[in-house]
Every structure is written in C-alpha cells, then in structure tokens.
Design a protein around this nucleic acid. Structure first.
Lengths: 148, 148
DNA sequence: GGGGGTGAGTTGGAAAACGCAACGGAGGTG
DNA sequence: CACCTCCGTTGCGTTTTCCAACTCACCCCC
C-alpha cells in the first residue's frame, strides 16, 4: 500500500478480500453448478491444483464453503456452498448477465431456466420500491464517504 | 492452464478476464462515486500507481472506462465510466450487499439513498417474473453445460 | 499379486504479477 | 526561485501464480 493512501471503508473491498481472486469466484460457480469434487473443479475452471487448494481453504475459513468428508483413508472431501456462499451466487448472476450482454450478445454460453418458465435474466432492483437499483441511486452516506 | 483442463465456456469467466483483478473493480467503484482524477483513485483505493495505470488502460481498451483530456501540456485526463462500465456497478452493488450482510451486519460503511426515499437494499430478481433470481434458478442449458 | 486408473492434494522451480519508492516534467503558488 | 501538485513511468525487489511431476491410497481387473 502506498503510504499516502487512505482507502475508503467499503464492503465491496472487504468482500473482494475474500473472493476477489480470479479462481475463487469460478470455484464458487462450479459449486453452484453442483460440482463437488476437486478434480472436476480443476478441469472445469482451468485453475492449477495448488491454487485451487489454497482458495478452497480460504473460502472454507471464511464460511463460504463447507467441506464434507466422504472417505477416510485416504481423506477425501466434497465441497458445498454454505448459505453465505449461496448468496454470492447473486454476484455470479450479475457478472454473467454483463458478459452475456457485452461479450456474447448473440449467443450466451449458458442459459438458466427460472422457475417462472422463462430464461433467467437477472436484474438488480431496490428491494423497497422494486425499481431498478442503478437508476436513482444517489448520495452515499456513512464512514466510507468522502467530501469532494 | 493445466493441460488436462477443459474450462467451461462461461460469461462469468469472460467478464472476470476484464475486471477480475483486485483493483479494477475498486477503480470502477471510485468512478461510480464521481471521482475523476488519478491521484484520488490511488488514495481512495490503496492501489499502487503503476498497477492502477495499467488497470485503467485495460478498462479503457475494453470499453469500460473513457478518458477525457482536460489539459494538454502536460497531458492530463479525467476518467469516466462508459455505459458498459455503468452496468458493472450492478456487480458492485451486489458485492456491497453481501459484505454489508456478512461482514458488517450492524454498521454498513456506506449507505446509498435510493430515489424512492429508502436506503438502497439491492436484490437480484428475474426480470420476467419479478421474483428472486436465486430461488428457483434451475437447469442450465447451452455450450457451457456439462453432463454430470 | 501386479498393472493401470482415479482422486486429492503437495512440492519445487520458473515465470509473471505486484508493490513501492523514486524520478520526471509541466505547471501553479508564495 | 523554491516548493508543491498532478499524472504517470521506471527500476528493482518481493510475492503469487503457474505447471509439471510426485506422492499416497484406494479401486478394478486379470
């Protein structure tokens, strides 16, 4: 950190400290697809094995992933998302939507079918009024705010 | 990439290729706060100057950030989000919400006031039916899908 | 029991990314 | 003129990342 820095207090930064590395979110993506085994996550993401091992540890330490032993001798685990991890899938949906719109406008690589029958098209709203969140998001207040 | 890897085609991964590095999203956060100057972004994020310079270049090359010259001699720029960049703020909102809930349950560092008058509390819904997206998101289809 | 296969890591060394201080240069201020 | 600001860029050392290879320990089949 440069010594003249004075980083804003911010939940975005704090969340990125936990899941901001390249392979963490992709590992969570695999878990959300129902993949449970280390080797499969390696294959489906392209992460190297050592990095993935350390990312899964970190995610576990932070309550995002849970390991469950399905064999002793040798010790083997399956990986699951905790409830907190499941909530992170919202982030994945929004990232996916952005990529679908801006990088694959004609042919999204994956479509999710929502329970309503339509193809899921995620959107971020204000849960109080139901309108789009980005429009009309104004005036931040709190410790993380700066004057100019 | 390990040679036995077979990464899933995925808009999440493709989006992370553009903005997945630690400081990219925080730079976008600053731009969304209205910060325009290089030094301010350095201060508010804690990024080192060289990394930030290269991230801003990359974001500009990918149409997420626009530079506007406000002085020749010396050449100086202000940074703005493009429309595509603005859409990425949805990602920030969802990350913020997760951090607020799980890391700062009692005192979120920043609150945004939404145009509806309430404090913004972002939520991801299916834009077709209006219900929460995560619940009932089922059965992915498309090139990025795998059988087991 | 031996050979081949799988699954989940760990290790070691090379390559890349990162972080920081220091520098530059063009201007503005006292 | 001396000093300060703003926006980067350069050099260099440190930290991560990456990948292949190795290790265990089991499984199946012959």
């Amino acid at each position: 950190m440069p010594k003249d820095a004075d980083p804003r207090e911010c939940s975005v930064a704090d969340t990125l400290d936990l899941v901001g590395e390249r392979w963490s979110l992709l590992a969570i993506r695999e878990l959300s697809y129902g993949v449970r085994r280390f080797d499969q996550i390696v294959r489906n993401t392209g992460a190297s094995r050592d990095i993935l091992a350390s990312r899964l540890r970190k995610l576990e330490a932070n309550g995002i992933v849970r390991r469950e032993r399905y064999s002793d001798h040798p010790v083997r685990h399956e990986y699951y998302l905790t409830p907190a991890g499941l909530e992170l899938c919202d982030v994945l949906l929004v990232l996916m939507r952005w990529g679908d719109r801006h990088l694959h406008p004609d042919d999204p690589p994956v479509r999710w079918q929502h329970s309503c029958g339509d193809t899921l098209s995620p959107m971020v709203i204000c849960s109080h009024c139901g309108n789009e969140a980005r429009m009309g998001a104004h005036s931040p207040t709190g410790r993380g705010t700066r004057t100019p």
